Simulated scan of single mutants.
Amino acid sequence: MQQINEILINGAISILVILLGIAVKAIKEYLVQKGGEKTIKIVEILAKNAVNAVEQVSAETGFKGQDKLEQARTKIRSELNKYNIHMTDSDLDTFVESAVKQMNDSWKGE
């Protein structure tokens, strides 16, 4: 029973990772059409920086899960406003989740 649960959980995680990859690709294509490659690069860099910043101060602030996501969104949105770029929360979440995955993969050495 334990092994079946592990297989199901691993399968679900694999499917979520694939779906996240598809979502990031779709959003990137949309943004390339709408604002060009420069916009994507700006959002990716800002997401990566915001995730790193929030992660570094999370021990001191006590932020967890959703609070960390909201902090990252706020930081990214304030910077995007400087470039006159506007995105929905779900689009920002996708970039934040992608940055978190990249950070976790680099910590694991993958």
Rank of each mutant, 00 (worst) to 15 (best):
M1F: 10
Q2V: 14
Q3R: 12
I4G: 02
E6K: 13
L8F: 08
L8S: 07
L8N: 10
I9V: 09
G11Y: 03
I13V: 15
I15A: 10
V17F: 13
I18E: 11
L19T: 06
L20M: 08
G21H: 03
A23P: 01
A23S: 11
V24N: 04
K28H: 12
K28E: 14
E29F: 09
Y30Q: 14
G35V: 02
G35M: 04
G36I: 07
I42P: 02
I42E: 02
I45T: 15
A50V: 03
N52S: 13
V54A: 02
V57S: 08
T61H: 00
K64N: 09
K64C: 03
K64E: 13
G65H: 07
Q66L: 11
K68E: 10
K68P: 01
K68M: 12
L69I: 06
E70D: 05
Q71F: 01
R77W: 01
S78E: 07
N81L: 03
K82V: 11
Y83K: 06
H86W: 04
S90G: 06
S90L: 15
D91L: 09
D91E: 13
L92R: 03
D93I: 04
V96Y: 02
S98H: 07
M103I: 09
M103Q: 14
D105E: 15
K108D: 11
K108Q: 10
G109I: 06
E110C: 03
